[in-house]
Write a protein that binds this DNA or RNA. Sequence first.
DNA 1: TCTGTACTAGTACGTCTGTACAAGTTCTCC
DNA 2: GGAGAACTTGTACAGACGTACTAGTACAGA
Lengths: 186, 186
Amino acid sequence: MTNSRDPEGRRRALLAATVEVVAEVGVARTTHRAIAARAGVPLGATTYYFPTLHDLISAALEQAAEAWDADLVEWAAKLRGAQGEPRQSGPASVLTQLVLGYLADQPRARLECELYLAAGHTPELRSLATHWLLGLRDLLTQLTDKSTGFALATLVDGVFLQATVTGEAPEAEDLRLAIERLWVSD
Amino acid sequence: MTNSRDPEGRRRALLAATVEVVAEVGVARTTHRAIAARAGVPLGATTYYFPTLHDLISAALEQAAEAWDADLVEWAAKLRGAQGEPRQSGPASVLTQLVLGYLADQPRARLECELYLAAGHTPELRSLATHWLLGLRDLLTQLTDKSTGFALATLVDGVFLQATVTGEAPEAEDLRLAIERLWVSD
DNA sequence: TCTGTACTAGTACGTCTGTACAAGTTCTCC
DNA sequence: GGAGAACTTGTACAGACGTACTAGTACAGA
């Protein structure tokens, strides 16, 4: 794939391949060899660009976290735009659609859950996972209040977890109703 | 630990040790040697009682799932008893306390999340995880209705996930308020 | 054109893994 | 007490792992 001399391209290819492998088999089963094969580069290239496997995985997860941050900005804009709208296009409906849209990208949702759990027994990842977790909560807290933000973010995390296990998204109407019940801003 | 001849005791010790190791390091990093050391038995004993590592882990998780089923029965009884009570001791307060009580046993909560995620990329575990997931949802659905049961179970799963990441339980008042908002039985 | 640096690519190493197995010990049943 | 089954224990093996390393190649600036 990245055959001709293109260091920056290889770096990107390695990070992208790492994200894919982690999403598929989990952090703990992610190996240099699997990443190299996926990226189409020889084994030695992995350690040339990232001294250790841990560095490579961390860098990949951090990059994914940045993408998630960018998404959150978009979510914030859409949710703000929905405030004051009638129920049909109000914040609860918009959040429901955003969540379901996110889940449609299954590998990505799984990657997020994977990071969450890996953080449970890998202290170095904990701050990254916490950042990810709090990003959504903070956003929702700003739109409502502390308690409501917590409740909504927790519900969404539960949806992610369930989707990771079952491989299926929840029914839109059930989710919308739940969000609507929680979204009681002062 | 289990030195004298006691096959059934060894079997139990191996299962208990497996649960502990899985909760600590995750399914993917659980090894024969770690389990044997934890159980205080020689390496060979692990494959004598369970032909493969997968058999051992599956058996341990199934055993944990049975314990969780038993817990659910208790939850059901307490929640039923709380119906019709004033807010202070009503279902929302009781469920809050049950969840927080469950989280107090951190290794156990982590084990549950661990199973959830492992199921994401280990098809054999998926049915077990789904069973675990649906157990709570069914219970809550019986006490309320389908949509409410889904919403409450999802919130609780979100709480478990967050607790696994951060290592901290949510504030009781936030959680109780969220449950109360969702718990609108027809 | 020469030289040093950046990069490539393949291989080698020590360690850890799941599992097999052989030799020994203790029990059960006749 | 003797035989066979059940159980114990330590060791061995092939494979996969992270990472180090060497030899080769392409590019920069002199």
